[in-house]
Simulated assay, not measured.
Amino acid sequence: MSNRDSIKPWYQVHKWTSLICTLFALLLCLTGLPLIFAHEIDHALGYQVEPPALPETGQRANLDDIIADAKTRKPGHAVQFLVGDPDEPDLWSVRLGFTADAPEPSAFYSYDARTGEFLHEYPLRQGFMNVLLRLHVDLFAGLPGMLFLGFMGLLLVISLISGTVLYGYYMRKIRFGSIRRSRSAQVKWLDLHNLLGIVTLVWLLVVSLTGVINTLSVPIFDRWQSTELAEMTAPYRGQPPLAGIVSAQRALDAAGNAAPGMTLGFMAFPGNDFASPHHFVAFMQGATPLTSKLLKPVLIDAQTGKVIAQRDLPGYVSALLVSQPLHFGDYGGLPLKILWAVLDILSIMVLISGLYLWLKKHKVPFETRPGVPMNEKPEATLPISAPKQVDGK
C-alpha cells in the first residue's frame, strides 16, 4: 500500500468528524472566551462583591447567625449548602432552595465570614453571562444537551488526532510554519489553518478532554451518591426523620477538627442529595492550587454533631474536580486566564479557516500540495485533497 493509500482513511476521518463538530466547537469557543473571565466580569457587573478590607484579627462570625439571617430573607425555604471560596477566605455564601433537595437554588446570599454582615444576593438565571453559561454547558437542554456536547467534544478530539497525522504527511517537503503567500488565497488559508492547528493542538486537546469529562458531571455525582455516600450512610437507613438537628456551626467545627489543615469547600445540609436526612456532609479542601480543587467529604451526625466517617473521593470524581477549573484556566490566576483566552482566539481562527476551506469546495491544485514532488504526475496518485477540504462528492 502506498503512502497515499494509507493516508486516505485518516483524511476521511478528519473530514467527517470536523464537519460534524466544527459548528458546535466554534459555539463552545465563542461562549467559553468570556466565561474564562467570568469571575472578573461578575465583579465588574456587580454580581459579586468582595468583603471589605478589615484588620486581620482571626475573628469568625457565628455560622448559625448567618444561617438564621438567610432564612429570614427567604421564609419557608430550606438551606441547601454553605459555600466557601478558596480565593476569598473571608467570604461565605448560603444557597437556599424551595426544599433541601430541590435541584435549582431559590437564592444565593454572600456574607462576610468575619463579621457575619450580609453582602450581596447573586442574581440567579439572569443576565448575558447566564445565557453564555447555559449555551456552553448544555444548550439549554439539561442533561441531554450536556451529553450531546460531550459527544461533539469526542469528535473534536478525533478530528485533532487525525488532523495531526495529515499535517505530518502533507508537511514532509515544506518548512514548518511556512505560509505560501505567493499561492492562491485558498492555499494561504490552508497553510494558516495547518499552522494554527498545530500551535493550538495541545491546548485544544486539553480543553476538549476536560470538557468531555465535565459533561459527565451529573452521572459521575449520581454514581458517587448511589455508591460511596450510600455506603457511608447505610447504618442510618430506615430511621425516622430527626425532630431537630445540631447547629451548623457545631457541624462545621467538627469537620474542621476531623480534617486539620483543610478549609471548607462547601457543606451540604441534611435532606440534600449530597448529604442524607440524618447528616451534614462537609467537603473539605486543601490549601495548594491543586488540593484546593479536590474535596474530602466528612460525614457528621446531624443529631449529635459527631463525625461519623470521612474518606477520599474516588478517582473518577477527583478527575472531574480537577478538570473543571483546568477547562477554564482557573489555576494560575489572571496570567493563565489570559493565555487561555489567546489560545481560545487562535482556536476560533482554526475553526473558521476550516469552515472557509470547506465552503470553497475546491481542491488545492495538485502541484501546490505540500510533500508532492514537482515531477510527480497527477495520474499516478490518489486525488486526496488537503485537510479540512471537501470536494462535495
Rank of each mutant, 00 (worst) to 15 (best):
Y356W: 11
G332V: 07
L359F: 15
W358F: 14
Y331T: 10
K363A: 10
W340A: 01
V342Q: 05
I338S: 04
S353A: 11
L334I: 12
G329V: 00
P365S: 07
I338N: 04
F328P: 00
S347N: 01
D330K: 12
L346A: 02
K337G: 01
P335C: 02
I352M: 06
G333L: 13
G329A: 01
L355D: 09
L351A: 11
I352V: 14
H362K: 15
H327S: 07
L346F: 04
W340K: 02
A341M: 09
L334K: 15
L355H: 11
F366N: 01
Y331K: 09
S353H: 15
V342H: 12
K363N: 15
K337F: 09
Y356G: 11
H327Y: 02
E367G: 12
L355Y: 14
W340F: 13
I338P: 05
L355N: 08
S353I: 10
L357C: 15
F328M: 04
I345H: 08
Y331N: 08
A341V: 13
Y356M: 14
L357M: 15
I345L: 05
G354W: 04
S353M: 08
L351E: 04
G332E: 06
F366K: 05
I338A: 03
L339I: 11
G354Q: 05
Y331L: 03
I352D: 06
V364Q: 05
L346G: 01
H327I: 00
K363W: 08
L351T: 11
L346E: 00
I338T: 04
P335R: 11
I338G: 01
S347D: 03
F366E: 07
L355C: 11
L351W: 04
D330Y: 13
K337I: 04
I348A: 02
L346T: 04
D330F: 15
L334S: 12
K361I: 12
G329E: 03
A341T: 12
K363C: 06
V364A: 08
Y356S: 11
I348G: 02
A341G: 10
P335L: 00
I345A: 02
H362L: 13
D344L: 03
L355V: 10
L339A: 10
K337T: 10
G354A: 07
L343I: 07
F366R: 08
A341I: 06
K360I: 09
L346S: 00
A341Q: 02
G354R: 09
P365K: 06
L343M: 10
L357N: 11
W340L: 00
L357G: 14
